[in-house]
């Protein structure tokens, strides 16, 4: 592809990446995506940095309004502007900054190198084209295949995502498929170009539990097969625990904690992560320990136009002290690979 024409990372970076053995596939640095509205500036993503390695599944979790979807849209250059804008920061994908690319260059990457799976396949599929035509388009658009060849490939792809009788399904329209089948078709489309990375934004939230399990298993199976990286954006902590290697927790546009999956669930540090984990009912815990009251995080998520000073979590935090009200805690590495943004952890109170 045209990846070669871009200058590789220079000097010190190169040395660093050699030392690290490989540079991350996706490296987001100090990303700020703001929305400029008449009511004021909404800082949907505020100074977010994280990376996704090759063949890695990273979970991005948080409640609604925490900026996880805006992060994904920023990566794809799909922020509607105006009112939205990437104010500053870098999104390095295979070493190139996506923020600096022209729409044409982004178009070549989107769908080809980075694919996206959205929550609601009924909205993301075009109702006027058959499933087959929509997958065919991926091949004709990005590979320049003839329609006939593309159709053959599309059929193979539908087989891969285990859609029964693909030869017939290829002519069907989205409304003729069930929710699970539509999501399979979406996955087929996303994987058609063998992307290096998939952004999966709540891929199973609209589906039933048993179908959810089918789709997640399928995604992970294909991920292993094709060596794709996945950024799994979800509020379903169970799915993250099971499939992700590393977890990033966001709260109101900021990353509050980042760690490999086991420490996140077994020894979470940030009071928000702790609260989030304690507030979900765990299947089977009643059989072991009897009925316990769920722990709540008091209060509610403040609106993005009405953010508190200092640490955004302090009005709901049981460990909050004076400094939390005044000064924003920066992410620091508490243990190798475990970063957290909290004064209480940093100062050890």
């Amino acid at each position: 592809m045209d990846l070669g024409i871009f200058p590789r990372v220079v000097g010190a970076k190169k040395f660093e990446s050699k030392k690290m053995n490989d540079r991350p596939l996706l490296d987001i640095r100090n990303l700020k995506t703001y929305f400029f509205l008449p009511e004021g500036v909404i800082k949907a993503v505020d100074n977010v940095s994280f990376h996704v390695g090759n063949r890695e599944i990273v979970g991005l979790v948080g409640e609604s309004g925490c900026g996880k979807s805006v992060t994904a849209l920023s990566i794809l250059g799909l922020i509607q502007s105006p009112p939205g804008q990437i104010v500053s920061g870098e999104i390095l994908f295979q070493g190139q900054d996506l923020c600096k690319m022209s729409p044409e260059q982004l178009r070549k990457i989107r769908g080809n190198r980075i694919a996206m799976i959205f929550q609601e396949p009924m909205i993301s599929l075009n109702p006027l084209y058959s499933i087959g035509d929509q997958i065919v388009e991926v091949y004709t658009e990005h590979y320049g295949l003839s329609r006939q060849e593309a159709r053959k490939k599309a059929k193979e792809m539908l087989e891969k995502v285990q859609i029964p009788s693909p030869a017939r399904r290829i002519y069907e329209y989205p409304h003729q498929l069930s929710g699970g089948m539509r999501q399979r078709a979406m996955i087929a489309m996303a994987l058609a170009c063998k992307p290096a990375m998939i952004l999966a934004d709540e891929p199973t939230t609209a589906l039933d539990v048993t179908i959810q399990a089918q789709i997640l298993e399928l995604m992970v199976e294909l991920q292993k097969l094709m060596g794709t990286s996945i950024l799994l954006i979800t509020h379903n902590l169970g799915a993250v625990a099971e499939y992700a290697k590393r977890v990033i927790v966001m709260y109101l546009g900021r990353v509050v904690e980042e760690a490999p999956v086991i420490p996140i669930f077994e020894s979470p540090l940030h009071p928000y992560t702790v609260g989030l984990l304690n507030s979900i009912p765990k299947l089977g815990s009643k059989a072991i320990g009897g009925k316990k009251r769920l722990e709540e995080i008091p209060g509610m998520v403040p609106g993005l136009n009405d953010l508190p000073e200092g640490c955004y979590f302090h009005p709901r935090c049981s460990k909050g002290r004076e400094i939390c009200k005044r000064k924003e805690p920066k992410l620091f590495e508490n243990q190798p690979g475990h970063r957290v943004a909290c004064w209480a952890v940093r100062e050890g109170w």
Partner: peptide, 16 residues
């Protein structure tokens, strides 16, 4: 089928 938030506990899943 229900994923549980305990990463160490890999359960045997019956996929319908």
């Amino acid at each position: 089928a229900i994923p549980i938030p305990e990463p160490k506990q890999k359960k045997k899943r019956i996929i319908l």
